[in-house]
Simulated assay, not measured.
Amino acid sequence: MLMERRAPGILAMHEEYGRGGMAEAKAKQAGGGKTRRKVVPTHMAHFVVKTAQYEKMIDWYLTFFDGEVVFSNEIATFLTFDQEHHRVAIVNMPGLLPQRDDTAGVHHVAFSLASLEDLLENYKRLKERSILPWWCVNHGPTTSMYYKDPDGSQVEFQTDNYETFGETVEFMKSQAYADNVGGVDFDPEELVRQFEAGIAVDFLLKRPDVRG
């Protein structure tokens, strides 16, 4: 099984060293106590989509991320929504065939929002622009909304359901998660109603089948 191939003690090391010391801790474990330098990415910088619907895709991603154009010409457009110089690039490739579901490839990319309130505000903003999620699900670790761009590529907005890495991993190691990795679907309108009615956020974030 996949879990059996993981190095032991990852959660314990995280609790001892924190996120910043994880690479060093794992290097020491692998090297019998001798530290070796491990190079890891600092963050995910951007993703790139190719499309035959160039203008339509630019408009969609600008709306989706509430972003701005950094550079654009007839070949490519670069968009950002934060301090990164570009988070999304859209490449104009006329004549491309439509995507097919029966081919291998990236399933989706995901972006985290800071809170349930932000996730729901973002849902309402996009709904006003006629962009609706095709799947809303509480996975357990996250509460997530999945969208499809005009070419059918999937992009997820999520918010973490637990405050710490340790709590999240503990849930992912639980029998409840093993029994239902996919999660529990939810109605976004009902979740908005419950949130605006003042129901406790901790309760709303907890996956319904494990609320007790």
Rank of each mutant, 00 (worst) to 15 (best):
S174T: 10
N138S: 03
R37C: 14
F81M: 11
E74K: 12
K127Q: 09
V109T: 08
Y17M: 04
E121L: 14
K38F: 15
V169Q: 07
D185T: 11
W134A: 13
V48D: 02
T103Q: 12
V88P: 01
A45T: 06
A25L: 11
D187I: 06
R87W: 00
M3C: 09
H14A: 07
L96W: 02
T168P: 06
P150H: 04
P8G: 02
A104T: 15
W135G: 02
V49N: 04
F165N: 11
L132Q: 14
L79W: 02
M44H: 13
P188E: 00
R207H: 01
A76P: 01
R6C: 15
Y146Q: 02
D66P: 07
A89W: 00
S112D: 12
G152E: 03
L204A: 03
A110R: 04
E84L: 13
Q29D: 13
E196M: 04
L204C: 05
R19A: 08
N180V: 04
R125M: 09
Q29R: 13
Q175Y: 14
T142I: 06
V48C: 07
G198P: 03
Y177K: 03
T164F: 10
I58H: 08
L119Q: 04
D59S: 13
R125G: 12
R125S: 08
Q53M: 05
Y162K: 06
V184R: 02
F81K: 13
A23S: 13
A45G: 06
S112R: 08
D209L: 00
W60R: 00
M44N: 10
V201H: 00
N180F: 03
G105W: 13
D185Y: 10
H86Y: 14
R100T: 08
A176G: 08
R211Y: 03
L62K: 09
Y17S: 14
T42P: 03
A76V: 10
A104I: 15
P150F: 01
P41N: 01
P150C: 08
L120S: 01
T35C: 14
A23E: 02
F195K: 01
D160M: 12
M145H: 00
F65L: 08
T42K: 03
Y54G: 05
Q158H: 05
V210I: 08
A52H: 10
L205I: 07
M57C: 15
G21N: 04
T143V: 04
T42Q: 13
Q53Y: 10
R6L: 15
Y61D: 01
P94I: 08
P208N: 07
M22F: 08
F195G: 01
S72T: 11
W60Y: 15
S115E: 09
L204N: 00
